[in-house]
């Protein structure tokens, strides 16, 4: 039986030499957590199932620095590696794959040019294309939207781009369905309402998307403890959960999270 995946996310600041993993993308204060490939090796030892490297500045110019980070990581870490942030065209994806990445995640560039999903899937395979969605709740009933009932009232979910700074008007559920049709292999779904709060994942959002597509959904945003991961993997059809800060500063190990999941009846690779 396929195991649910636990994916530490390494938010990388590539403006410093060799890059640094940072905490708090959307917090004002940035704390350095370590050298990317050293943290990657540590997560491998702890039993992570996959790693995501995000360039938090989404800088086109620094894709070579990210390539070096992935090259260095792939010498010693043997699990699926995803690169995201600043993937704007097929050439950026190719740079990432040549450096040792298995998948790239796209968000802004795909919203602006949806054919990018088809192109990555065609040249590198569906499994190599992760669509990242940053979604925000919009309360109230609006015609043509996928309306979801939540304890806080009815809402729909709007996609944002440019790192959450701008909104698209696009319905996240509809975009996820379209992305699957275009050949995306995974959906990495971040709740903008929960990201950075440590209040737990947005269960209604994760349900709405994971019930609408057949491709795996990676739940993201809001993880503060192992019980949050248990909740989202037990109560929704998400195939994986992503967390960053709870791992980076040693609050919890991946192993501790997996023990909590196993005890809660979720099938994980121990």
């Amino acid at each position: 039986m396929l195991a649910k995946r636990i994916i530490p996310c390494l938010d990388c600041d590539l403006g410093v030499a060799h890059g640094r993993v940072v905490k708090g993308v959307r917090f004002k204060q940035i704390r350095y957590a370590g050298i990317p490939w050293e943290l990657a090796e540590e997560y491998d030892r702890q039993g992570a199932d996959e790693l995501i490297f995000l360039d938090i500045t989404a800088s086109h110019e620094r894709r070579e620095t990210m390539a070096k980070v992935i090259e260095k990581t792939s010498e010693n870490v043997f699990m699926p590696l995803t690169v995201g942030g600043g993937i704007r065209e097929l050439a950026d994806a190719r740079t990432a794959f040549n450096s040792g990445a298995d998948k790239v995640s796209v968000n802004t560039a795909a919203l602006k040019n949806p054919d990018l999903i088809n192109d990555i899937a065609k040249y590198f395979g569906n499994q190599a294309c992760v669509l990242a969605i940053d979604a925000k709740r919009r309360y109230g009933r609006e015609h043509g939207r996928g309306i979801v009932d939540t304890p806080d009232g009815e809402c729909w979910f709007e996609c944002s781009f440019y790192g959450g700074r701008e909104f698209t008007g696009i319905d996240a559920v509809q975009w996820a369905i379209e992305a699957e049709e275009r050949g995306a292999g995974d959906i990495m779904l971040t709740s903008m309402d929960r990201d950075g709060t440590k209040d737990g994942f947005d269960i209604e959002l994760t349900k709405a998307i994971s019930d609408s597509v057949n491709i795996p959904v990676i739940a993201s945003g809001g993880c503060g403890n192992p019980e949050h991961i248990l909740e989202v993997l037990r109560d929704t059809n998400a195939s994986a959960a992503l967390a960053a800060s709870i791992f980076h500063f040693g609050e919890y190990t991946v192993g501790e999270v997996k023990e909590c999941l196993r005890d809660g009846g979720v099938h994980v690779r121990m």
Binding site: D49, N126, N214, R269
Partner: peptide
């Protein structure tokens, strides 16, 4: 089953 199978299996 979801196709492709993608992930860790026993």
């Amino acid at each position: 089953v979801k196709i492709p199978q993608m992930g860790w299996n026993e």
